[in-house]
C-alpha cells in the first residue's frame, strides 16, 4: 500500500531551527509557526507564479488517510535566487517537505524546505 512511502515522518514538531519566513506579500498569522509537519509525497502540481509558488502534494495525513496539501512557497523570483530551477520540482516527483501547518487544521501550509528527487534540500522561505 505504501507504494511511494507516503507517510507522515514527523508530526507537530516544535522546531527551533526554522526562522521567520523571509519574504511574502502578506502576514503569516494563519500559519502556526510553532508546529511543523514533515511529509513524503508525490507532487500533483506546481504553480510557478506570483505572488507565491504553490506545490500541491498528494500524501497521507496523520491518520494514514490520503490527503492533498496546498503548500505555499516564496515567489518564483526568490526561489530562483535560492538555487531552484524551473524543473527542480515537477508533477510526479516524490519529495519530502517540511511545512508550518494552517492554524485552522485544513490540509495546507507554509512550505519551509523541500528535498527534491536529486537529493538536494531547497529552502522555500
Amino acid at each position: 500500500m505504501k507504494r511511494f512511502g507516503l507517510s507522515i515522518i514527523l508530526a507537530a514538531a516544535l522546531l527551533t531551527d526554522m526562522s521567520v519566513p523571509a519574504a511574502a506579500h502578506h502576514s503569516f498569522a494563519m500559519f502556526d509557526q510553532t508546529k511543523s509537519l514533515t511529509v513524503k509525497g508525490q507532487v500533483a502540481k506546481i504553480q510557478w507564479q506570483n505572488p507565491h509558488t504553490y506545490v500541491v502534494l498528494q500524501a497521507r495525513d496523520a491518520q494514514g488517510q490520503p490527503a492533498k496539501y496546498l503548500l505555499e512557497c516564496a515567489g518564483p523570483n526568490e526561489l530562483m535566487r535560492w538555487g531552484w530551477k524551473t524543473d527542480t520540482v515537477k508533477a510526479g516527483d516524490i519529495v519530502t517537505v517540511t511545512f508550518y501547518v494552517l492554524r485552522d487544521g485544513r490540509p495546507g501550509g507554509l512550505l519551509y524546505k523541500i528535498t527534491a528527487t536529486n537529493g538536494v534540500t531547497y529552502s522555500a522561505q
Binding site: 506579500h25 494563519m30 506570483n50 496546498l70 494552517l102
Partner: peptide, 28 residues
C-alpha cells in the same frame, strides 16, 4: 548579481471575507 524579474500577481489565493479579514483559499 541579481536580475530584477517580472512580477505579475496572477495567482493570488487570498480573498477578503465579509468581515474584512483575509481568507486563504486552499483549492488548487
Amino acid at each position: 548579481e541579481h536580475k530584477v524579474m517580472e512580477y505579475v500577481c496572477d495567482n493570488n489565493k487570498y480573498t477578503i471575507g465579509p468581515d474584512g479579514t483575509v481568507q486563504f483559499n486552499i483549492d488548487d
